[in-house]
C-alpha cells in the first residue's frame, strides 16, 4: 500500500526546473565553505569547522572523511546528509568494486557511484535530494599526466599519456558532486557560502605545477578570507592526498604494501601550517 503512493517529491515545474534540486543547492550555498586544490603531487581539501557553542567538544565532529585509502572527501551543506553519503561511498567502494576486483575504485569510478546515489534521490519515490555538494579528492595509480609512454602498435610508434585520460591515466584528481548528481573535475574550487569569492581568490593564486605544500598554504590563505571566527587547529580541518604513508599501515615488512595516500591532518599539524602562514 505504501509504495503505491510513493512518488518522487522532485517534480518538474512548468518552466522546466526541478525546484527541489534548486532548494537543495540553496542549502549548499548556505553551508560552511569547503575548498579543494589539486597539486602536481597531491590534493588538499580544507574547510572551516564551526561550533555553535564554546562548550562543544571540538574533536567529536569531523567533516573531512576517508573513503578509500587513496580517496577522501569534504562537503558543504547538511551534515547528516553528508554522513549518509560517506557511508554509502565507503560501502559502494567495496560492494561494487573491491569485492569484485580486489582493488579500490579509481577516483572517477567512485565519483560516478556517489553521483548515481545522489541522482537517484532526485527521481525516486518518497525521498528528497541530498542537501550537500561534495569535493572528492583521490589519487590513481597509472601513468602520471606529465609522463609519457611509448608503445609500438602494429609497427607504428604511439605515445600514451595520462593527460588525455587514456587507458592508463593516473595521478591526482579533484571532483565536485552536486545534489542533482552532476559532477565536474577541477584544478581548484570551492563550495558553500563564500564559494564565489573563494573561487575568485583561487583563480588569482592558482598556478600550474603547484606543489602540495604550496597548495596547503593557498588553501589556508583562501580560507582565511572567508572565515568568520578564529583560525586554529580546532576550527580548521584539512585533508590531504599525498605520498603513501607507510607508517599508517599499522604493520611493516610486507613487500609491495603501500600505505594510504589520504589522511586528515591533526589539529597540531594544522596549527603548524597556520603559524607559518
Amino acid at each position: 500500500m505504501a509504495d503505491r503512493y510513493s512518488f518522487s517529491l522532485t517534480t518538474f515545474s512548468p518552466s522546466g526546473k526541478l525546484v527541489q534540486i534548486e532548494y537543495a543547492l540553496n542549502a549548499v550555498n548556505n553551508g560552511v565553505t569547503a575548498l579543494g586544490i589539486k597539486a602536481t603531487n597531491g590534493i588538499v581539501l580544507a574547510t572551516e569547522k564551526k561550533s555553535s557553542s564554546p562548550l562543544i567538544e571540538p574533536h567529536s565532529s569531523s567533516k573531512v572523511a576517508l573513503i578509500t585509502p587513496n580517496i577522501g572527501m569534504v562537503y558543504s551543506g547538511m551534515g547528516p546528509d553528508y554522513r549518509v553519503l560517506v557511508d554509502r561511498a565507503r560501502k559502494v567502494s567495496h560492494t561494487g568494486y573491491k569485492r569484485v576486483y580486489n582493488e579500490y575504485p579509481p577516483t572517477r569510478i567512485l565519483v560516478q557511484d556517489v553521483a548515481q546515489v545522489m541522482q537517484a534521490a532526485t527521481q525516486s519515490g518518497g525521498v528528497r535530494p541530498y542537501g550537500v555538494s561534495l569535493l572528492i579528492a583521490g589519487w590513481d595509480d597509472g601513468i602520471l599526466p606529465e609522463e609519457e609512454l611509448e608503445v609500438e602498435v602494429e609497427g607504428e610508434k604511439k605515445k600514451i599519456s595520462g593527460k588525455t585520460g587514456g587507458i592508463l591515466k593516473g595521478g591526482p584528481s579533484l571532483y565536485q558532486v552536486d545534489p542533482s548528481g552532476s559532477y565536474f573535475p577541477w584544478k581548484a574550487t570551492a563550495i558553500g557560502k563564500s564559494a564565489t569569492s573563494a573561487k575568485t581568490f583561487l583563480e588569482k593564486r592558482y598556478t600550474e605545477g603547484l606543489e602540495l605544500e604550496d597548495a596547503i598554504h593557498i588553501a589556508l590563505l583562501t580560507l582565511k578570507e572567508t572565515i568568520e571566527g578564529e583560525m586554529n587547529g580546532d576550527t580548521v580541518e584539512i585533508g590531504i592526498v599525498g605520498p603513501p604513508e607507510d607508517g599508517l599501515l599499522g604493520y611493516e615488512g610486507v613487500e609491495g604494501a603501500k600505505g594510504p595516500r589520504f589522511r586528515v591532518l591533526s589539529p597540531q599539524e594544522v596549527e603548524d601550517y597556520l603559524t607559518s602562514l
Binding site: 576486483y101 580486489n102 582493488e103 569510478i109 560516478q112 585520460g165 587514456g166 587507458i167 591515466k169
Partner: peptide, 13 residues
C-alpha cells in the same frame, strides 16, 4: 565504464 583495458591481475580477480 573505466575507459581503459582491464589488467591481467584485475581480470583474474
Amino acid at each position: 565504464r573505466e575507459e581503459r583495458n582491464i589488467s591481467p591481475d584485475t581480470f583474474a580477480n
